[in-house]
Each structure stands twice: as C-alpha cells, then as structure tokens.
Design a protein around this nucleic acid. Sequence first.
DNA 1: TTGCAAATGCAACTATGTTGCACTAATTTT
DNA 2: AAAATTAGTGCAACATAGTTGCATTTGCAA
Lengths: 114, 114
Amino acid sequence: MAILNKFEQSNSAISVVDLVESLRQEMNKTTVYRILERLKNEGELHSFTGKDGRRWYAKNNGCDSNQQTHPHFQCKECGKVECLAFEVTIPHIPNYKIDSAKFLLIGQCEECLS
Amino acid sequence: MAILNKFEQSNSAISVVDLVESLRQEMNKTTVYRILERLKNEGELHSFTGKDGRRWYAKNNGCDSNQQTHPHFQCKECGKVECLAFEVTIPHIPNYKIDSAKFLLIGQCEECLS
DNA sequence: TTGCAAATGCAACTATGTTGCACTAATTTT
DNA sequence: AAAATTAGTGCAACATAGTTGCATTTGCAA
C-alpha cells in the first residue's frame, strides 16, 4: 500500500505529521494513524518519539530484541531522523522489569555540519 | 518558589501536566511553563519526554556532561518516571556532532511488579 | 445477491503547549 | 519620593497532534 512505499523509498524515519501531509489527497489522517499502528503491530514498522515529542515511524530491518535496541538520531537543524546501524544493550535494573528502551541522540548531521 | 519545593519533596520526575494541575489554584499554566523553562536554563532542572510524548522535569543533581547522560525510567503501569542513578556513555558517530542524548527505559517498577 | 466484517472518511473533540497583550509588581534612575 | 524601566504574571485565544464515535464504503464469503 501507499504508506509502505514511502518507507521503501527513503531510509530515514518519517514523522506522522509528514505522512499525513504528503498523503492528504489520498487518504484521511485518521486512516494514516490507523494504518501506521497496524503496520507497527504487524512488525513492519517501529515507532518512537522525536525531540519535540512528535511520533516517527521507521522500517523494521529485523533486529530489536528485548535485550538490544538501536538508537535514533535527530538533527537539530534540519530535523531529519535516522535509525543508527548499531545496537545498544538495554541495562538491567534490580527489581525492575524493562520491556523496551528509546535512545535518541540529538545533534547535527553530516549535511548540516558542512 | 513553589515549584522548586515540589521537586525537593519528591525524588521522582514530575510531568508538566501534573505540575499545572497541582498548582492550578496558585498560578496560571503559562506561568508554570515559563518558570520551568527558566529553571532549566538556570541549570536547576532538566527536561525530557516520557513514553507518550509529554514533557517531564527533574532536579539536576550535578552530572550530565556532553559525554554522559543518565537514563530515565517510566513504569508502563503507574506512569511514574525516575532518573536512574548511573551514567551512560553517549556514542560517537563519524561525521556527526552529537550534543545530547535521551535514554528512556520502559517497563514495570518495583511496586507495580509485586 | 445477501450479509457480515474490515477499512475508510468525516467531524467533533481532547490535550499539550504557545503567543500576544494587558496588567502588576519590583527595581532602578533621576 | 516620583518617574521610568524591567521582569513577572494572568488571561484568552490560538496552534497542532492525536483520538473517538459514527456513518459510509469496500471487500469477501456464504
């Protein structure tokens, strides 16, 4: 479907805001939200929160166990978000049960630095 | 001032929503937002985003350099957020400049587990 | 064709957070 | 002490992300 296409074409994460906007003529925003949630439940996508508290989605390329997670990077200048290609071990805390972790790095990307 | 008191009394982080609510009779929500931002700039507090994208604040107990950050933990049952008492090294990425990092662990806290 | 379930559209709503502007301290200056 | 500047507060209106209820459409199966 149209939404998955968007993720095939770009390797970056895409914000829900952008998706709703760019699909405005094809489908309703409620539909976009619902499809994204479905794709997440089906394991095609994963979601996380950007530096401003808005939701982003990205393709699931295998990975993401209970022990490991990959960080995301957001450029504070252009706003772009990427999945970083390495895994981080989720720390263990005595007496707590950790299900998942969100690791967001904020800074400047290659293009914005030059 | 009244807001700092709230943070002295509790060691957990406090969500802006809770603060606005609990101070409703003493001050306007705009004022709460502004004071929180000021305390953050002055280095008294730090802010971050909870699992649902809402903003939380917590006391600054020294620490938080450019190289290290402490993770936050949010209980998915009771919603409580805590600063974790250890530091995590912020990874270095070639050609990128990393300014800061947000590390949020999600799971169940001691009380909710028992 | 009929009937049912899943998917979509639409409008209204909720909630977080922001902004502009007026008003009120609190300080400083003369 | 009076006037003038500055910082802090309140209020209302706004902006935007995300959700919900309900009606309508679509697709598929009996």
